[in-house]
């Protein structure tokens, strides 16, 4: 499926480009709305926005098949929307309401969907990595050819359990794609200040795991790399690592003033590498869509997000006896 780079742009269909545009825009508008609701006190606690990184999940979801699994960290809103979870249920979980995916008991960082094979939403940095390998283990054990996407950040990449997992994943040939979302900052600590490794994906070589670096700001590059990784896993060749070079525009969480980087650095990234603008330009210059067409999509997305926000405010808080449910089977 993956084609040579020169041929890729011309072969990409209009519908595909429009779908990426729509999916990425949904995440961005959703996150902007979440930021707004946080500011209004409707969302509490920690809230980690995905703005800037949209191409990663949208590209990989475009490469995935039904039944493939995914698991990630606490910066999880984008992953949930990209894999088809309902924006209303996600937003209502952010506001801690009965209509949320976890009935309001999980919050921003802890959401799940058995239906969409989304296994969280994990608040402990790096803990989702062995969990992801375990999900892949379950598919191998059952004899399916499904693949698990295990997302983690450049910060988690320094956790020991990641390497314990690499070792077992390669040893047992597990069908897991490790997706390192390298947004260059682990909270306030840049990659350069936390490791002397020149690249993160290359650490897999110590365990015999193949991988590559990917332009995580380009949804097309991400999709292509994703297809390669999935093919590797489905062929029974074991795990694969994709290091997505990406960037988050907002702070680590809502309460992060992001003093560790310059305003210019962020602006430069937005101006030159923005994944949504990138596709927008391709749509316009390739004459796949007019400004009017894109405005219509913008409006449609805005409506979806507003509906989700309304739902998240109207859905009641969980009943008090919910305190005591869902602890045991």
């Amino acid at each position: 499926m993956a084609t040579a780079k020169s041929a890729k742009k011309s072969n990409i269909s209009k519908d595909e480009l429009l779908a990426y545009y729509r999916d990425m825009l949904l995440i961005r508008r959703f996150e902007e709305k979440a930021g707004q609701l946080y500011g209004m006190g409707l969302i509490g606690g920690f809230c980690h926005l995905y703005i800037g990184q949209e191409a990663v999940v949208v590209g990989l979801e475009a490469a995935a098949d039904e039944g493939d699994k995914r698991v990630t960290s606490y910066r999880d809103h984008g992953h949930m929307l990209a894999c088809g979870m309902d924006p209303k249920g996600v937003m209502a979980e952010l506001t801690g309401r009965e209509g949320g995916y976890s009935k309001g008991k999980g919050g921003s960082m802890h959401m799940f969907s058995t239906e969409r094979h989304f296994y969280g939403g994990h608040g402990i940095v790096g803990a989702q990595v062995p969990i992801g390998a375990g999900l892949a283990f379950s598919d191998m054990y059952k004899g399916t050819d499904r693949v698990t996407f295990t997302y983690f950040g450049d910060g988690a990449a320094n956790q020991g359990q990641v390497y314990e997992t690499y070792n077992m994943a390669e040893l047992w040939n597990l069908p897991v794609v490790f997706v390192i979302e390298n947004n260059q900052y682990a909270m306030g600590t840049s990659v350069k200040r936390s490791t002397k490794s020149p690249s993160l994906w290359e650490r897999g070589a110590a365990y015999g795991i193949e991988g590559e670096e990917v332009d995580g700001m380009s949804v097309l590059a991400v999709k292509e790399a994703g297809e390669k990784a999935i093919a590797h896993c489905r062929a029974g060749k074991g795990p694969y690592i994709l290091e997505m070079k990406t960037y988050r525009y907002r702070g680590h969480s809502m309460s992060d003033p992001a003093k560790y980087r310059t305003r210019e650095e962020v602006q430069k990234m937005r101006d030159e590498k923005d994944p949504i603008e990138n596709i927008r330009e391709m749509l316009i210059t390739g004459k796949h869509a007019s400004e009017e067409d894109l405005k219509a999509i913008d409006k449609e997305i805005k409506e979806i997000v507003n509906e989700a926000a309304d739902f998240s405010r109207e859905s009641p808080e969980p009943a008090l006896d919910e305190l005591w449910t869902d602890i045991y089977a």
Partner: peptide
């Protein structure tokens, strides 16, 4: 398993979430 308690406990928990 290799000697990797943190890793295999997490892996097994993931396998349980996956239906095993």
């Amino acid at each position: 398993t290799p000697i990797t308690e943190h890793g295999f406990a997490g892996l097994a928990a993931g396998a349980a979430m996956g239906g095993l």
